[in-house]
Nucleic acid binder design. Structure first.
Lengths: 122, 122
DNA sequence: CAGTATCCGCGACGATACTG
DNA sequence: CAGTATCGTCGCGGATACTG
């Protein structure tokens, strides 16, 4: 090899990585994941659980997560039509990284807010 | 307590969490972090290291990370003007969560690509 | 060298209305 | 109930030009 890379541990931020993170960590995905990690939900259950999301955005989020194999959609053949969304085994593996990230955010939020105030007032 | 929450481990996706993740995991932040984790860099060093980024976006990314206390900007009083960016202790704590996330992405990329192909062809 | 200023396109997202 | 369709807004990010 010529360019002698990787000093300690590489971050490897490739285009596919970025695209994947954009799909999986987008605005509503974490909230949806949160709900579906507890138990399967129907569409309107999710709407009620995440009041700020619109139909359109929720549908888009669900499709995106389904396409990436994170969640599953099952059409229950009942009277008016019912759909159940549940997390897949692959989706469950995403939980740990997300938890680590949210723990980081929670732990360092005070420090970050201090940094912001300092930055904003000088 | 009344609403008996948290079945296993809660995800806690609050608005501040989302805002923070948006600031810290945005399009170019991971690449910048990657570079600055190795060693401090000057502005144009970063541009060369991340060829796809524009001046404007790089500047914006650096400001945002600086505001959140993730990186530091030092103005070196040399002849033409030199600026050095380096990661802060707080910034270093972000490394682990990001690594976990990227490892997840790397590990599951094949499975995810399979899921996408399946979804797209049916 | 390290930015700032300006213009602009494009995709994300919301609001609203309609449907099998 | 679980969507689709349409319209409109807004802001990110790119392209380009200029500056201390």
């Amino acid at each position: 090899m010529d360019t002698a890379p990787a000093p300690d541990s590489e971050l490897r931020v490739t285009a596919p990585h970025r695209e994947l993170l954009d799909q999986v960590l987008d605005k509503w995905s974490l909230s949806v994941l949160n709900e579906l990690c507890e138990r399967p939900r129907r569409f309107n259950e999710l709407r009620r659980a995440i009041p700020a999301v619109t139909q359109k955005s929720l549908t888009a989020t669900l499709r995106r997560l389904e396409r990436n194999g994170i969640i599953e959609r099952e059409l229950l053949s009942s009277r008016p039509v019912a759909v159940e969304y549940r997390i897949t085994p692959l989706g469950k593996t995403l939980r740990r990284p997300v938890d680590v990230l949210l723990d980081w955010a929670t732990d360092h939020m005070p420090e970050i807010e201090r940094a912001r105030r300092t930055f904003d007032t000088e």
